[in-house]
Nucleic acid binder design. Structure first.
Lengths: 354, 354
DNA sequence: TGAGCCATGGAAAAGGTTTTCCTTGCAATG
DNA sequence: CATTGCAAGGAAAACCTTTTCCATGGCTCA
């Protein structure tokens, strides 16, 4: 051990120390089928340990045309939703010895383009896209030879293999839940519509209005930006409407949390005065007061499945796609029968509900 | 344009098309000082465009021993604190044409070791560590030749250049604030003590107790795990003590949010029944109800400064270090004079306070 | 006329692997 | 004894660049 050499040690150094050729060292290293004498192998292994030799991945990649690296393009890593997806990707990649190179787009198509170029130049073995940009010019052209090694989480361009949840259906599910609870005047706060996810969720809400014969009141559909602040402002706009909604569906939990502030500022309470329901089911939902009903998206699993799908592509297989994942509604206090709850709270008797 | 070739095009292809040697192509590519005829240059550029040629970064790196990639080792990317630090790193690296390879350690020293090995194998040009592991065997040995191209955010091993905040002083600041507000029975909820940050914050709290002559009640210092759940449980333990604290300092905001649930379950209110104060000042602090007093850590700036420090190291400079960053206390409702606030809320007259 | 300089271009080495192909020596088989 | 086959090892090509060094031809200046 030891010998913390300043400049890195190469396979040649090992060969010299083990008194053999670099070919033999390479064979031991990759335990190739070509036989090597047990004694020689010992010497080589000893030399490797002695020098703390590690093969240079660059040289290896140059030859094998495999970098064991995949690129992930995400809109915003500090959003808990994508953070969880990325975890799924990283863990799964790691299991197969792959590394993940993450590019933030900040939801700008310029940065998206730039990110793709960087990743291509770094010779990634495949791409995972998430948080698709809606209405951006065709992405396929930028990918070139990597086009066949690209998977999408969600919906981007139809040609790509993808891993998805049915966001339209999810919105309908949420609306149905509210209807069953007896709410009719339902508002919707959307995220920015350059994301296909946001487009689908909004579309689903519109369909639900029709399906359940709900009124479509002007101003009941607000568009925001998937941030706390944007949710806060959207809520204030809703509160300034002449005829207030009874329940609000938010296209993501962040916006909902922001909106809660607008409510409490007015002394309004959930679920007594409004029912609210979110999207994504981030961890805070079960810790907020009141706990928040939300549509659970299997974030980690999406990342995991996308990565597995990509590996299957890399292996040259022809996997079935799209892969659909189920969503489910997690009911919590924010949509529970209102009168009952507010009494409980006053008596300070609430039990833990996660 | 076009010709979306299946297998990548090399500098040789360009040379052939432009009827010159690869040397010449390389020269126009890196516009070297060696003169090349204007007409030839035209032909080369035309060929490059025609074939959509992009130099292979792998081959370039193999030669130059520079990968234009830096490695970042973080405990948990889905923690909003580290997400923000990473943003600072990525943005800054990007400006200089560098890419960032992120390794999650999940706070396990095994995964830390593994992460370092992977990054070394990928030939990163430098390391940034954050969320130092306390009491782990010396990390320097794992870094070998990269030891001189490593910076730390926080405190890890004294020999490394670092970018820091004074966490001890920050805890004292928080305690002082509570004392000034008239609180004396102060509890502290710590994160897991394998993080040097958490060690320092706790140490600061202990010093503050002495400095302000506060009682050190048994059970008033709880240790948890920097998660919502852990904060919830710590709070429940505090609430079961015979003599309850008046104010609680949390070693991070996540734990504080978790604790809020434990409080509301008991019908207890902040700041009426308890004052609470957090650490990190994540965005939600200003949107929670009540808004949360927290110690602001310049997360993005820490990442930014660390990256700049690293670049300075890579350039062979000998920068001054450690670099200290200021913290400040952001006062919000969770520690404001209690009687007043609770009246406001009942009248529904509260104004927006961020 | 010849020496030296400049503009332009190419050949080849280097970087660290893996892999293909070849060599050597020895044992077994006829 | 001659032939075949196998175990073990090495040489060299290939991967794609950049960079150093050399070659050529034309021009200027003494």
């Amino acid at each position: 051990m030891g010998v913390l050499s300043r400049n890195s040690v190469t396979i040649l150094d090992v060969a010299r120390l083990a008194r053999c050729s670099i070919t033999t060292v390479s064979r031991v290293l990759n335990n190739s089928s070509h036989k090597v004498n047990e004694e020689t192998r010992k010497r080589v292994l000893e030399a490797i340990r002695e020098l703390d030799y590690r093969p240079n991945a660059l040289a290896k990649s140059l030859l094998s045309k495999r970098t064991m690296t995949i690129g992930a393009v995400v809109p915003d890593i500090s959003n808990p939703y994508y953070a969880e997806v990325v975890r799924g990707i990283q863990d799964t990649a790691d299991q197969e010895g792959y590394t993940v190179l993450i590019q933030n787009t900040d939801r700008s198509s310029d940065r998206l383009r730039r990110g793709i170029h960087i990743l291509r130049e770094k010779n990634v073995d495949g791409f995972i896209f998430t948080g698709g940009l809606h209405g951006m010019e065709r992405i396929g052209e930028l990918l070139c030879e990597l086009k066949e090694r690209t998977v999408v989480i969600g919906r981007l361009e139809e040609e790509f293999p993808s891993v998805r949840v049915d966001n339209e259906q999810a919105s309908i599910l949420a609306a149905e839940h509210l209807v069953q609870k007896g709410y009719h005047r339902i508002a919707y706060v959307s995220g920015a519509l350059y994301s296909t996810t946001m487009v689908d969720r909004l579309e689903g809400f519109r369909k639900a209005l029709k399906q359940f014969n709900l009124p479509e009141t002007p101003g009941y559909i607000q568009e925001g930006k998937q941030t706390l602040e944007s949710g806060y402002e959207a809520m204030r706009r809703l509160l300034s409407l002449p005829e207030k909604p009874e329940a609000i569906l938010f296209a993501n939990d962040q916006m909902l949390f922001g909106a809660m502030k607008a409510l409490s500022e007015r002394g309004l309470r959930v679920p007594k005065d409004f029912a609210v329901i979110g999207f994504d089911n981030v961890p805070l939902c079960s810790y907020f007061d009141p706990t928040i009903t939300s549509i659970e998206i299997p974030k980690y699993e999406l990342g995991q499945a996308a990565t597995r799908l990509l590996f299957s592509l890399i292996r040259g297989e022809n996997p079935q796609t799209p892969l659909w994942f189920p969503v489910r509604l997690i009911e919590r206090e924010s949509t529970s029968a209102s009168k009952l709850r507010s009494m409980d709270r006053q008596k300070g008797k609430k039990l833990p509900t996660f």
